[in-house]
């Protein structure tokens, strides 16, 4: 299964991921950074498995991230 990986600490909180894919992302009110919903936290790197159908949109979001901290693998 493909995965979204989010290197959260480098997030600058621009909100583009949330704008484009609100089903996967929220903007944290606590620290202003994006949060990958339902993800697993492995030492500050957040991961979630996605279906093939969500791949296209997730790839667009990864491309849109201005600081390139969203990867699809």
């Amino acid at each position: 299964m493909p995965k979204i990986i989010h290197y959260r600490s480098k997030c600058i909180g621009c909100g583009v991921c949330y704008e484009q894919q609100p089903e996967c992302w929220r903007m944290s009110k606590k620290d202003g950074k994006a949060t990958l919903l339902r993800s697993v936290n492995k030492k500050g790197v957040f991961m979630i498995e996605i279906t093939g159908a969500a791949m296209l949109k997730s790839s667009d979001v990864a491309k849109a991230c201005p600081v390139n901290i969203i990867k699809i693998v």
Binding site: G13, G15, M27, S28, K29, K30, D31, G32
Partner: peptide, 9 residues
Amino acid sequence: MYEHDMQLL
């Protein structure tokens, strides 16, 4: 500044 930045701010 965006709305979601207010608490951090």
